[in-house]
Structures are given as structure tokens and as C-alpha cells.
Write a protein that binds this DNA or RNA. Structure first.
Lengths: 227, 227
DNA sequence: CAAAACAGTGACATATTTGTCACATAATTC
DNA sequence: GAATTATGTGACAAATATGTCACTGTTTTG
């Protein structure tokens, strides 16, 4: 439940389709059928990205962008606009006014996704911090979310931190002591063997997607994340 | 400050035309006719934005993007790629790999300009925010750490997410339903009142530092984070 | 002011998490 | 291959977290 996307689109079919696809990808979606609805939503939510249809019933996309950009709080939110085909003048106008991107309708949902991800990646600081990927394992540490091959996985906090440590250090040998220091802190009284048990639990959780073998044992020292 | 734009394009006519237009708009331009020339240029200049033609003589656009993104220093530079018409797969691939935008050739120079400006606007003067701060409350969502007035605070996962939601939406009224959707997801069977109990628990945790009053009740709707 | 609606709060049962242990299994050494 | 050492694994108790409920206090309504 990490990124909020606000969809401003009056055509219900398109709006719901986009919302559906976005939700399936793990985004939280908010919908507005008009400019005014959008502004109402913005009083309650801070979306991380806004998709705006150019042709709204009550105001033009430009007006809406102007109003959004006037608000200090949501000034920075990336805006992707959707335009009907052609109308190059509008595209340019929109980009000048503060939109960050546009797509021509009918737009490929795949492409929309790619663009949304690209913008989120840029606007939210950079990947190593927010999103770690490794062999189909996608971790969003900030949202405390883990998705393996498209399926959300639940881990306990310790397991999550442990996996995160591995993902941040792929192919690096992590000694037990190092793991202990990193997860429990330097001054705790936790046995080395506890690490092994948590490794076991983590492996169990990853087993469903056959990712448990990625965590390899290095006898006498610790563990490595490797293919 | 003048912005440096690096143009990577093997067709001389297009390259010079773009350079000319960009220079006339006040940009400083650097040109490369191949991937290797581009890499050479990057050793000497740090452009603020790079335009890459997808079809280069010596390497694919993807390869070039990979090599650029591997370099820590220029990781953050926005990249706009130019593709021949069609080829949606390439677009998506490029965006996934680290391009921030693309244009289909033949591209309108006007539109290219608009996009370049949009990206420059975004990439400059925006700081990635891993940390959320509010009135002495410091949350590092990624590390799952909360510090209030210098003292570390322990919250359960739900409480943490709840507080994070508030910190991300300061001064915004969050309806119960909205909180439910955001923390428990859309399709769970959790009562509204559960939110109240978690608010209670969160307030208790914040009480020690008198931050519990920040979470104000809005009768009939939900809660707000406010001084 | 009385009734109704709403939020605050303590208590409770369940579920999950966590560190440890004992024993099983595997790898290494001699 | 027997002894030794290290890791895998199931079980357990204690701690923590979670959702719901009943009851209390407060605010709003008529």
C-alpha cells in the first residue's frame, strides 16, 4: 500500500480499467470524475502521482494543473496527462504549465505503467533506497512490502529486516556476528544460533517461490544471498 | 544557470538541428554520434539531461542507459530516448531500465523542448525524502525507525503505518474509510472502530512526548494530524 | 435537557512473533 | 568411518500484536 495514484478521468470505463490495473500492481488508487472532484480528493489525500485526462467536463486540464501547482504542498507531485490523439499544441501547453508527461489516448496500459513507475522512481529519491529488486524479489522497504513473482509475501519484522540485509548485500558473505549487529544492534544478548533459526524461517517463507535456495550457507561463517 | 544537454544521435542532420534549437533556447549542448562518443563526453561533462537515439551504430540504447546508470555520479541525470515509430516493447524496456521519457521519431522539436524543460524542472531543486519530520517527530520509514525528540519509540507495525499515513498527510483530514483502505487494504473485513482503537494506542505511545494531541478527532469523519 | 450519535478506553481472546533449546542431519577432520 | 563440529528443524514458553466488544464519557440534535 505504498504509492497513491489519483486518477482524474470522466470516462468511467477507462477510469475503472486504469484503477484496476494500478491496484493489481500494488498501488493505492483514488478516483475523480471531474476537476472539482479531483480538488476535493486532494484535500484528503496526498497522491504520489496524478493522471489527468485532458478533456474534463468542468474544467480544462490546464486549469486543473494550474490549481494543483498553486498548492505548495502538492507542487512536487508528478502529473501525467492523457490527451486525445493529435493536438500537439495542447501537449506542449500542458508540459509547459507543469505536467511532467503525457500519453495519447487510446494509451497502452503497459506503457502507462512503465511511465508511472519511471516518474515515481524519479520523484521519490532513488531506487537503492526505496525499492530493491533481485531475481524476481521486489522489496519496498519503506512500505514494508515484499512481492515475489507478483505475489505479496508476508514476513515478520525480523525476517523482513534479514531479507533486506541480504538484498542490500547480494553476493556478499554475511557473518553471523555481522547480521546480529545489524538487526539486533551491538549491545543485545542474542545468541548466534538465533540467526540460524530466522534464516530457517525466512527460507520457509521463500520456499513457495523456490527462492529459498538463494540464501546459501557458508559453513563456519554465515550466509550469502546468491542464485 | 545554464543547463548542459548531451545529444546522442548518429544522424548528423537531426543532431545538428536539435543542437541548434536547444542552443537558441539557451541550453549548452554537447554532441555524440555514437555510444562510445557519449561515454567519452560523460567523462568530461556532467550534462543535466541526456537525449539518446535508440538506434546507435555501436550499441543499443539499452546498453548505453545501463552503462550510464551504473555510474554513481550521473545516475540521477534524466534521460530522454528517441525511438523509431512503433516498437512499444522497446519503449517499455527503456523506461524500465532507467530512461525517464521517450519520444517517437520523427519528433516535433517543440515537443522535445517542452519535455526537456519538464524534466529539468523536476530534476533540479527537488530532494528525495526518505525521512519524514513533523514537530520533533522523525520517522525513517525505510529503517522502520521512529525518534521523537531524540528518543527512539517503539510502535507496532500497524501503529507505525498509521503514524506514517498521518505524517505523509499533515493537516489533512483522513476519513476512517480512507485509513482502513490505506492500511488494511480494500478487501478486508475490519470494522471502522478498529481504527479508533489503533488511534488510541498510537496516542498512548506518543503521550510520553506530549505529541498525542497532534492527532485530532474530527467528529463523524476521522482524524487529522495537526499541531 | 433528554435522547441519540459518536468517540475514548479497558478488557479479552486469538493470533503472531520471538528467542531458546534439544535433537536430527550434514559436513569436516583425522 | 568414527569423532567432531556446524547447521537444520520442530517444539515451546513468553512476549507482543490485533481485532472486537462492552461500557464510559462527550458532543450534537431536536
Amino acid at each position: 500500500m505504498q504509492n497513491n495514484i489519483l486518477i482524474v478521468e470522466d470516462d468511467m470505463a477507462i477510469r475503472e480499467m486504469m484503477a484496476f490495473s494500478l491496484r493489481r500492481e500494488g498501488f493505492e488508487t483514488f478516483k475523480a470524475a471531474s476537476g472539482n472532484e479531483a480538488l476535493e480528493q486532494l484535500n484528503q489525500v496526498h497522491p504520489d502521482l496524478i493522471v489527468i485526462d485532458w478533456g474534463l467536463p468542468d474544467m480544462s486540464g490546464i486549469d486543473l494543473i494550474d490549481m494543483i501547482r498553486r498548492d505548495d504542498v502538492i507542487r512536487e507531485v508528478p502529473i501525467i496527462m492523457l490527451t486525445a490523439r493529435g493536438e500537439e499544441k495542447d501537449k506542449v501547453k500542458g508540459l509547459e504549465r507543469g505536467a511532467d508527461d503525457y500519453l495519447t489516448k487510446p494509451a497502452s496500459i503497459l506503457e502507462l505503467m512503465a511511465r508511472i513507475r519511471a516518474h515515481l522512481r524519479r520523484s521519490q529519491g532513488f531506487e537503492p533506497n526505496n525499492r530493491i529488486e533481485y531475481q524476481g524479489i521486489v522489496m519496498d522497504a519503506e512500505a514494508h512490502e515484499l512481492i515475489i513473482e507478483g505475489e505479496p509475501i508476508n514476513l515478520s519484522l525480523t525476517e523482513f529486516k534479514l531479507l533486506k540485509l541480504f538484498l542490500q548485500n547480494p553476493n556478499k558473505l554475511l557473518a553471523r556476528e555481522h547480521i546480529l549487529n545489524h538487526i539486533w544492534g551491538r549491545n543485545t544478548f542474542v545468541e548466534d544460533r538465533t540467526v540460524d533459526v530466522h534464516i530457517l524461517r525466512l527460507r520457509k517463507a521463500l520456499k513457495k517461490h523456490h527462492k529459498d535456495q538463494c540464501i546459501q550457507t557458508v559453513r563456519g561463517v554465515g550466509y550469502v544471498l546468491r542464485d
